[in-house]
C-alpha cells in the first residue's frame, strides 16, 4: 500500500476528468450522415428559392422597373431579366396573352395586343410575373462550351462576363426564355436573384419593389423560412415540369394557360 502514491492533487484531477467525460452527452458522438454533415456547414446550408403568388399580382410592373435600374439593364431596350405577363381568358375559351415592354410601365390599357376586349366577355384575367427559375438541372449551364455560366453552391445560376464568348447557346437552351444578350456587355445575361443583395441579407430588388407581396425569396433549406413553409404546405406549381429542369421558382395560383 505504501508504494501506491495517490496524492490528494492526483485524486482531484482524476475525479474532475472522469466527471467531464461522464458529462459529455451521447449526442456529441453521433455519427452524421453525409447530408447532415453538409448541412452543418453554413455555406452549404442555403438554397435560394422564389415564390410567386399570382393572386396578388396586379400588373403594376414596379418589379420590372426596379430590376432594370438595380441590375443596369438598359431601360429602353426591349430586354429584361424579369417580366410580367397578362392572361385574359374569354368566355368563348380564347386566351389573350401580352407583355408590353415586359410590363415595365405596368398594364394600363384594357386593349390586349391592340385588340378591344369586352369586359362582359372576360371569364378570368390575371397577371403572372416571370423570371429565371434557377433550375436544379439548368440546361443553359450544360450547353456552355467555355464554362462561363455555372451554378453556385447555393443554387443560383450566374454568368461570368469576362469568360462568356457570346455564342448564345444558353439563350437558345433555356426553355423559359429567361436569358438574353446584354446590349452593352455583349455577353449572355440573366436574372441573378440579385446575388449582390441576397448575399448581404437583403431581398431582391423585385421583391422589395412589389407593393402586394406577390414575390418572395427565401432559403429552401431552412424549414422555418416563410417561403419554404408555403412550398412545403400549400399547393404550388412550377413551369414546364416535363422538361425535367426542376425549377426553383414556385407559383401559387398557376393556371393551365400559363406555360
Amino acid at each position: 500500500m505504501t508504494n501506491m502514491k495517490l496524492t490528494r492533487r492526483d485524486f482531484i484531477m482524476t475525479a474532475v476528468k472522469g466527471a467531464a467525460v461522464a458529462a459529455l452527452p451521447l449526442s456529441a458522438f453521433k455519427i452524421l450522415s453525409p447530408s447532415e454533415a453538409k448541412a452543418a456547414i453554413k455555406e452549404a446550408n442555403v438554397r435560394w428559392g422564389f415564390l410567386v403568388d399570382t393572386h396578388k399580382c396586379v400588373g403594376c410592373g414596379f418589379c420590372v422597373k426596379a430590376c432594370k435600374n438595380e441590375n443596369e439593364v438598359p431601360y429602353d431596350v426591349p430586354v429584361t431579366r424579369t417580366w410580367v405577363e397578362r392572361y385574359v381568358v374569354l368566355k368563348d375559351g380564347k386566351t389573350l396573352i401580352d407583355t408590353p415592354h415586359g410590363g415595365r410601365e405596368g398594364f394600363t390599357e384594357q386593349k390586349v395586343q391592340e385588340k378591344d376586349v369586352d369586359p362582359k366577355n372576360i371569364a378570368k384575367a390575371f397577371f403572372v410575373p416571370k423570371l429565371c427559375n434557377q433550375c436544379e438541372n439548368p440546361p443553359c449551364v450544360q450547353v456552355c462550351p467555355v464554362g462561363a455560366t455555372y451554378q453556385t453552391g447555393n443554387g443560383v445560376v450566374l454568368v461570368d462576363r469576362t469568360w462568356c464568348i457570346g455564342c448564345g447557346y444558353c439563350i437558345m437552351a433555356c426553355p423559359y426564355g429567361a436569358r438574353f444578350f446584354h446590349p452593352i456587355h455583349k455577353v449572355a445575361e440573366k436574372c441573378t436573384f440579385c446575388y449582390h443583395r441576397i448575399t448581404k441579407g437583403m431581398k431582391t430588388a423585385c421583391v422589395d419593389a412589389c407593393p402586394f407581396g406577390a414575390r418572395k425569396i427565401g432559403n429552401l433549406k431552412d424549414p422555418n423560412d416563410p417561403v419554404t413553409k408555403i412550398v412545403m404546405t400549400e399547393r404550388i406549381g412550377i413551369l414546364k415540369d416535363a422538361f425535367g429542369t426542376k425549377p426553383q421558382v414556385f407559383y401559387l395560383g398557376l393556371d393551365d394557360n400559363v406555360r
Binding site: H55, K56, C57, G59, V88, Q110, I122, A125, F126, F127
Partner: peptide, 8 residues
C-alpha cells in the same frame, strides 16, 4: 381594369 379574378 375590369378583371373579375384578379386583385387588380
Amino acid at each position: 381594369l375590369p378583371y373579375p379574378t384578379s386583385h387588380r
